[in-house]
Simulated scan of single mutants.
Amino acid sequence: TVFMNSSVKQAQKDGATVEDISAGLSVSVVKNAIYKVIRANSASDLGENIVTQGGTFLNDSVLRSFELEIGHNVIRPQIAELMGAFGAALHARSLNLPQSSILTPDELNRFTHTSKSVNCNGCTNRCFLTINSFQNGERYVSGYKCERGAGNGDAVSSEVLPNLFHYKREKIAGLSHISGKRGRIGIPLALGMYEMAPFWTEIFSKLGFEVVLSGFASRKLSSKGQYSIPSDTACYPAKIMHGHIEELIEREVDVIFYPCLTYNFDEKTGSNHYNCPVVAYYSELLAGNMDSLKKTKFLYPYLFINKPKELAKGLYKCFFDDYGIKLTEIRRAVDAGYVAYDKWMQDIRAKGL
């Protein structure tokens, strides 16, 4: 994962040896399997008589880490990596089927398979692919992230499958940036603020601000904020936020707005709508690590966006002292923001149908 790669790089910088890093990875694989995949409350829940299976347990380090975690030795068969295949075969035999629906005995005897690793040239991502070839000329490709990597680049036309990323990008670029009597307010286009740009743009435009967006991510923009990134373990979307803030400072906006939001919009599609902790509170880190922010007013209030009245009260506390904005005016702006955001989402969804 992204976080694992970042942690390994940080450990290398801290002087950890290859042996220590390898051991740490083995332990993390075991702990992840027990407590996050199996979801055991404790290692003792797994029992005492345990037989391991799967290719992962051919790794002696993983096997020993597992034994240390549960507190006793386990049994690893010599065919651990084939246990799943044997189980599937035994299950198929128990069904007493007249013949296989996949291969006949003769085809099975003639079955051959080769695989090779290549880089996809369908786009600049150059995804790492594994191409499996079979004796009948068929192929199976794994590792791809789009239809081009699967070899079906012409199967889906742009008319059938529109590029919604490009569409949203063009819409964000076209958001109104009219001058305002209350000055220029900057909004960074990163993390959760990217998706919420139309919401905040509408609110602050109604309140008499000229909304200045930081622009789209680029290598040049990213490099502007590298000096203030406190740790390599942060994800890239968080790291690039530093560049967006620097961009707004260079544009000499009067105030930068990046609120702390524990919750995102409740779209009624899941059991909760919490923001990732990084998305929710990264503005706190920016305020403490970016010396350049001392030159510009930086507002990062804690707000609740799923109740218009609560949001209006939060914005009132944040803006009244410096701008004298009345609560009634903020309420009207907030209502307009919700209407604009709903229309925005309806348009995006309609485009994707």
Rank of each mutant, 00 (worst) to 15 (best):
E147Q: 12
G149D: 11
A150D: 09
A150F: 12
G151P: 09
G151T: 13
G151Y: 07
D154K: 13
D154C: 10
A155E: 10
A155V: 07
V156L: 14
V156N: 10
S157D: 13
S157V: 09
S157Q: 10
S158K: 10
E159T: 15
E159I: 14
E159P: 02
V160Q: 11
V160H: 09
V160W: 10
P162H: 12
P162M: 13
N163C: 10
L164R: 05
H166P: 00
H166E: 15
H166S: 12
K168C: 08
K168S: 11
I172V: 15
I172T: 09
I172R: 05
G174C: 08
G174A: 13
G174F: 06
S176K: 11
S176N: 11
S176M: 06
S176Y: 03
S176D: 08
I178Y: 06
S179F: 04
S179R: 09
S179D: 11
S179M: 07
S179E: 12
G180I: 04
K181T: 03
R182F: 01
G183M: 04
G183K: 01
R184L: 03
I185N: 01
G186Q: 02
I187Q: 00
I187S: 01
L189E: 05
L189V: 11
G192H: 10
M193R: 08
Y194L: 14
Y194T: 14
E195T: 15
E195C: 05
E195V: 14
E195R: 08
A197L: 08
W200S: 00
W200E: 00
T201G: 08
T201R: 04
T201M: 05
E202R: 06
E202I: 00
I203G: 01
I203D: 00
I203S: 02
F204C: 01
F204V: 01
F204W: 02
S205I: 02
K206V: 04
L207A: 03
G208K: 06
G208Y: 06
